[in-house]
Design a protein around this nucleic acid. Sequence first.
DNA 1: TAAAAAATAGCACCAAAGGGCAATAATATA
DNA 2: TATATTATTGCCCTTTGGTGCTATTTTTTA
Lengths: 244, 244
Amino acid sequence: MSNESKKDQKYPINIAVTVIDKITETIRRPVTLSDKRLAERCLKGRIILIDDDPEIIAALVALLDMEGYACDTYISASQFLQEQQCNRPSFPGPWCILSDIKMPGIDGLELQRQLLEMGEPPLIMMSGESGAYEAVAGLRGGALDFLIKPFDADIALLAIERALAVSKERMSFALKNSDITIRFSGLTSREADIVKRVARGQLNREIAEELDIALRTVKLHRQRAFEKLGVTKLVELVRLIDTL
Amino acid sequence: MSNESKKDQKYPINIAVTVIDKITETIRRPVTLSDKRLAERCLKGRIILIDDDPEIIAALVALLDMEGYACDTYISASQFLQEQQCNRPSFPGPWCILSDIKMPGIDGLELQRQLLEMGEPPLIMMSGESGAYEAVAGLRGGALDFLIKPFDADIALLAIERALAVSKERMSFALKNSDITIRFSGLTSREADIVKRVARGQLNREIAEELDIALRTVKLHRQRAFEKLGVTKLVELVRLIDTL
DNA sequence: TAAAAAATAGCACCAAAGGGCAATAATATA
DNA sequence: TATATTATTGCCCTTTGGTGCTATTTTTTA
């Protein structure tokens, strides 16, 4: 009895909450009615449109709005980047950027380079027919897709769906990853050291010898580390460590 | 003593040889002097050139020849595909395809589709400036790079280097994978079943109960499977299985 | 400086893993 | 059909892992 309660109380729900907070940065909660609608749309997907052509923007907004997506529009890359600086709260959900290539000031490729440093968010690029160079550069640079203007609504929607799927995947991956990182950061250095050796396949006895400590101490650290990491079996530990 | 010899003689070197044979299909051995030179070049990289323009072919062959690569040239995709049918022996080494897009008969994109079914070998595509559509289709279809004619020698060489690196990686991955597969195929069905459960984290006792067999039997199978797979520790087994 | 956290370790006990030895039963294959 | 392979099991013994209980020594921190 006392055993169980001891285990369970160590890593309760608040850790998960901390993780989610860390990932989505600042979480905004719907308060007004329009907020609520926006939050719903964001849950489906938020598309950041960057294009200096207001007609394109208008057309895409109309399309995406109809499909139930949330849209943020920017008439230049620099405008978008500036707004990103002051990272204001946003509703949670998958998102992607749909940016034109040919723009005054910072062009799409330069934007892509800058985004790369910020963690390479899901990016779809678009441009006129002529730009084979740009298309190659964009796709080679990690763009998820490249739309050649003029394009059909279906094509764009498909690309966006895929990009949002990628976004979701990356988010859940990052979440899982940071969860593991946080769990690891809860270990003392000794515990971390020992658990790594365990995952390497070393026996308790070997570890004790190498670190020149008693077998009982190794067992103790191992046990503590398992508890803190939330694993009960060796195989779980190995898989946990290998995902890192 | 008798214990060691029993373990070691089970998986000797000839298994590795079998694996390599399986991967590189038919291995050709250099016999003549020119064979020897070709073998050396193939070791560095073999580039399969497909273009209907003889001038391009000639220029690329000259370039690649100078750099020490081996070249196979084809004036059409269908010619290449036909020769692939009768898979003749070749020297081992990384390789890639450098194909034009616009060709009479089977074009580059169609070739790409057919290659996809054959295991998606490393492919670089090339085309004239105008083809933004083709560039997007090619890259989205998994081409490693896309060269826009006319291109500098440096650009082409860089792309080829990268493609060969990918080729090497894929080969070693396939080799490792088939090695594991072969090792697994040496297990009896019972052994395979039990070892999977072990890797899932089940205790011998639990396995014995589920399969309704004696604990000793489980241990026996487990032991045999470990020997056949060439692992000694549980962590090794987990990693082996997880790479599959 | 006092309290908290971390590291250390001995003793004892039980469960699980690993393996030697010997033997039987069922299947597959030459 | 005879032999080889595979599957099965019991008995027994050692090593390793997992834990409870207790206690001392450092380090860190409030």
